[in-house]
Design a protein around this nucleic acid. Structure first.
Length: 930
RNA sequence: GGGAGGAUAGGAAAGCUGGCCAACUCCGCCGGACUUAAGAUCCGGUCCUUAGUGGUUCAUGGGUUCGAAUCCCAUUCCUCCCA
């Protein structure tokens, strides 16, 4: 008895035992199916959102396996990059927040946590955790092929890959601005920031105003507004410095002087100048003439050069600052100078906008939004006045910047678009220009062309993402591909640097095919020639361990290219596109090895809010599995949304999923051994079953896990309910139910493999259900007539119930009156008519109909309505051939009487003498309850 | 700012090559049956109205059409990506 109890954790234990090496997959005679997932960066524990990412491909893998394919589903761990280095530092520094996250949320034991001061220990720990939890989820992964991206062997593979990229001319050297901490003396990654992780580096133009023998540089994003400059702003409370920058005298804030050093300038500070001493002095620029310096306390010395040029006609801040001064009776001769015409903002846009929004002073919180609004409006729609060239702002901006750089000493200065940006160490982050920065030249049009050509031949799921890929390829710019900190493979042409994490994980899908075998060879022997041989078939002398290489070559040729890659949609604009670029280069001229398809996922929500480890809004996958069971988690994640849609995890919904599995299990256990003789209703059940098989198969072919579950689970369950209702009281069901159970269990096996294995054993199925044959729909068992008869019966039962509810009397008998043959004729004529409007005329031409007069036209109208109302799968067969309604109801008489507990009479409407019987229509008999 | 997608019952979600659509299905809730009870299961209900009917609905406003949740335009809001 205890064996047949529904006990998920017992099933799980049983299955794990059977599966130990089952999913290790080798080349064989069978057709192959290779799928893979973007590998995880194991810096923390898995949450349920991760669960779906790996369960969807597992369902597909299991499905394809049952279809008889040789399936490869590998997994590895991406440990390269900087984040984990930051984490280890924070743990070493006893950062409370980080420690709490790892100790309390991820539940890392203290003795392990103590070791986390070493970054590699962190990723290795969580890689093992990942494997453990993935296994608990029933993922059918070939773990022999597991690797991490800092394995020496893998590094050799990366070096080989980059050699090809380099030789193809895709790796170039350039300069690059980065966030930089001068205390740590290192670039700062997102995860190393205390504040300002959204800040971006913006390229400003320094407009050089002449001030005696020196320059005063003002940073701007809008150099074209130089024509409208009325003054500069200096902060009277700030101490400025006069410094020799690249040999020429500049007046800038102290902070700016420090920043310029990081941006390729030599800076020697000569003297300090008080801001107040600058006020009311004059400066000049060839494009705007002489203007005064005005005082303004809003000027931030830590923003770019610490001096600001004022364009009151187009910048709300400048406008208000000037207005405030003038209201105090100062500088009243200065007038805003408009220079850009923009529709809908009057003569002086800044003034117009400020007045429209009724902004009182500089402190108004809407100022930033307003500035942004004007900036955007002028950029997209604005045009310079004719005297300044008349060009659109979009074009003029770059032209003016170029002119200033060439003729008027302007230079570029990088600064953040928002502040403050603060490092973990508490120091202000600055922008530094890095030299020796290497780039992947994704901007290369020829390379783009190869990628976009191949993209056309790839299967993309869902199809809507194709435009996003096309756009990404179109827009992609050069990508900085080396870093100075973190874990990773050394960059071959500059050993001081590392290959950046997104750039070292683009062709590893090929590496999976040989990962378990290449380990046997000493990494020192893994020259590029070795990989050239394995992956490209290029022969060369002195290849080591030729036999092993041949075996690897064979694996690669068998598995590659991969059939589908699964990944979340936020990777479209980088990783998923990069990997196509890299494949195109590495497998240059070998189109048959390029990726075949991709499935892109939506995001995960927890109780309606976005999942986020840092905010603590996560539910750990491990907890979910132990609380609800692996099958429950799987079925919930697969059934709540299609893979590419966002899904929402809610515990109460998960709980009801568990009940569903239990219901399924109990039902199967109860009926699997039924042995009665089949009735008509069994033929109906078998007929319906074929459709569920076909639809489930089709859904899975399209990766629609939700649709597939809907068909395979609820579709069959609903049929069974009707089936049991239709069974005579004393009958336990026929031996056909055994077939149904076998099919049903197999259809669900990819989703709930643990329960599947257990039931398979209970049903004495051969081998493991994981490798059992996928059911195939048998067209011969589809019986349209029987389905139609049941449909008629079900609809009639429904009608009787709704009438009974309405009249609220205790019925003594029910009479079902069937429509006469001539109404069937009308029905058929209308259903087959090409023009349903004129068909009534046609009908009335008939002698027999005409003599019935109004009765016939009424019936025709009602039939038309009915035909519109019935689904096509009912109308079509009825149009071909009427069904024998009398026979249907006669044989169901016992059922109906049992259902309603009163005598049921079946009569022909015509000649019954009942008034209500006249409303009888084909497929809709009249019902008289007394 | 540029790009992509979306807005349907209490929640989730199907339908979206125009007529079958008050709208598959699941969850929740309400009522009933079974049960000592709970749970499970089964039946019914869940916009208004009603002898199985009819009406009003699918973010808002407009358009195309004999006819639109479904096509087109505008607006509002949401999500994601890039800047």
């Amino acid at each position: 008895m205890s064996v047949s109890q529904f006990d998920l954790s017992a099933f799980e234990e049983e299955a794990h035992e059977k599966w130990t090496h089952s999913f290790e997959s080798n080349p064989s005679k069978l057709e192959k199916y290779y799928l893979n997932v973007a590998f995880p960066y194991p810096s923390g524990a898995m949450h349920v959102g991760h669960g779906r990412t790996y369960i969807v491909p597992d369902v597909v893998a299991r499905y394809q396996r049952m279809k008889g394919k040789q399936v490869l589903f590998p997994m590895a761990f991406h440990v390269t990059g900087a984040p984990v280095v930051g984490i280890s530092k924070r743990i070493a520094n006893k950062d409370e927040k980080t420690i709490r996250l790892y100790r309390d949320l991820y539940r890392v034991p203290q003795n392990v946590l103590d070791e986390f001061t070493d970054p590699l220990t962190i990723v290795k720990h969580f890689a093992n955790e990942y494997q453990r939890v993935m296994t608990a989820c029933g993922l059918s992964i070939d773990w022999r092929r597991r690797f991490i991206t800092v394995d020496p062997t893998y590094s050799k593979f990366i070096e080989w890959q980059w050699k090809h990229l380099y030789e193809a001319g895709h790796v170039i050297k350039g300069v690059h601005p980065v966030r930089y901490c001068t205390v740590d003396d290192n670039p700062v990654g997102d995860h190393d920031l205390l504040e300002g992780d959204k800040a971006e580096v913006i390229k400003f133009t320094l407009v050089m105003f002449r001030f005696g023998d020196a320059f005063i540089p003002c940073a701007t994003l809008r150099p074209e507004t130089i024509h409208g400059v009325t003054n500069l702003w200096a902060n009277p409370t700030v101490t400025y410095v006069k410094a020799l920058v690249d040999g020429r005298a500049w007046i800038i804030s102290k902070e700016a002087a420090e920043k310029l050093v990081l941006q390729d300038h030599t800076v020697e500070i000569r003297e300090e100048i008080k801001g107040s001493d600058l006020v009311d002095k004059k400066v000049s620029h060839p494009l705007c003439g002489e203007v005064p310096i005005l005082p303004a306390e809003f000027v931030d010395p830590d923003m770019a050069s610490g001096m600001v040029m004022s364009v009151p006609a187009h910048a709300p801040f400048d406008y208000i600052a000037l207005r405030d001064l003038q209201q105090a009776g100062k500088y009243t001769t200065i007038k805003p100078i408009p220079l850009i015409k923009v529709e809908g903002y009057g003569e002086v846009p800044a003034q117009f906008a400020v007045e429209k929004a009724a902004i009182a002073n500089q402190m108004d919180s809407r100022m930033d939004a307003l500035t942004q609004e004007i900036y955007s409006a002028e950029f997209s729609k604005g045009k310079l006045f004719a005297q300044y060239g008349g060009k659109p702002v979009k074009i003029a901006r770059d032209e003016v910047a170029e002119l200033m750089t060439e003729k008027y000493d302007s230079v570029v200065m990088y600064e953040f678009d928002q502040r403050p940006v603060i490092c973990r160490c508490g120091n202000r982050v600055k922008v530094k220009i890095l030299h020796d920065q290497w780039f992947l030249k994704y901007s290369d049009p020829a390379w783009k062309q190869e990628v976009s050509d191949h993209l056309k031949d790839m299967a993309l799921v869902p199809p809507e993402v194709r435009v996003e890929f096309d756009r990404t390829v179109d827009w992609l710019k050069d990508w900085a591909c080396t870093r100075r900190v973190g874990l990773g493979t050394r960059f071959p042409w500059d050993k001081q640097q590392l290959i950046e994490p997104l750039s070292d994980s683009t062709v590893y899908m090929a590496y999976y095919t040989i990962a378990h075998k290449i380990r046997e060879i000493d990494p020192k022997l893994l020259t590029p020639e070795v990989f050239d041989y394995i992956f490209l078939g290029k022969k060369s002398d002195d290849l080591p361990q030729k036999k092993k290489l041949d075996a690897m070559r064979e694996e690669f040729l068998y598995w590659y290219p991969y059939d589908f890659r699964f990944s979340a949609k936020d990777l479209i604009s980088n990783h998923l596109t990069f990997q196509i670029f890299h494949h195109c280069t590495v497998f240059e001229g070998q189109k048959k090895f390029l990726p075949k398809g991709m499935v892109v996922f939506g995001m995960g929500l927890l109780n309606g809010a976005k999942m986020s480890s840092s905010k603590g809004n996560v539910f750990l996958l491990e907890d979910a599995v132990s609380e609800f069971g692996g099958d429950t988690v799987r079925m919930f994640l697969m059934g709540s949304a299609e893979p590419w849609q966002d899904f929402d995890w809610r515990n109460e919904l998960v709980l009801s999923t568990k009940k569903q599995i239990e219901r399924f299990y109990n039902t199967v256990m109860e009926i699997k051994d039924a042995s009665g003789e089949p009735h008509d209703i069994d033929r109906w059940l078998m007929s319906r079953l074929q459709e569920h098989i076909a639809r489930t198969t089709e859904a899975l072919d399209n990766f629609q896990t939700r649709q597939a579950l809907q068909e395979a689970y609820f579709g069959i369950e609903t049929d069974l309910k009707w089936y049991r209702r239709r069974m005579p009281k004393d009958c336990d069901g026929s031996r056909d139910l055994h077939t149904l159970c076998s099919v049903w269990t197999r259809l669900l096996a990819p989703f709930i493999p643990f329960t599947g294995e257990h039931l398979w054993k209970e049903m004495a199925g051969e081998g493991l259900i994981s490798f059992a044959p996928w059911p195939v729909a048998d067209k011969k068992l589809v019986n349209e007539k029987i389905e139609l008869a049941e449909e008629l019966l079900a609809r009639t039962v429904e009608d009787i119930e709704s009438i009974r509810k309405l009249i609220q009397i205790t019925p003594k008998s029910i009479t079902i009156a069937l429509a006469p043959a001539w109404k069937h004729d009308i029905f058929r004529m209308i259903a087959t008519a090409s023009d349903r409007n004129s068909v009534i005329k046609e009908i009335m031409k008939d002698e027999n109909m005409r003599k019935r007069g109004k009765e016939a036209t009424d019936a025709a109208k009602q039939c038309t309505t009915l035909i519109h109302r019935l689904p096509p799968y009912v109308v079509e067969p009825l149009a071909r051939e009427p069904i024998n309604e009398k026979a249907v109801f006669d044989s169901a008489k016992a059922f109906l009487e049992q259902e309603f507990g009163v005598p049921v009479h079946i009569v022909e409407a015509e000649g019954s003498g009942l008034v209500k019987a006249l409303t009888a229509l084909p497929f809709k008999p009249a019902i008289i309850i007394e």
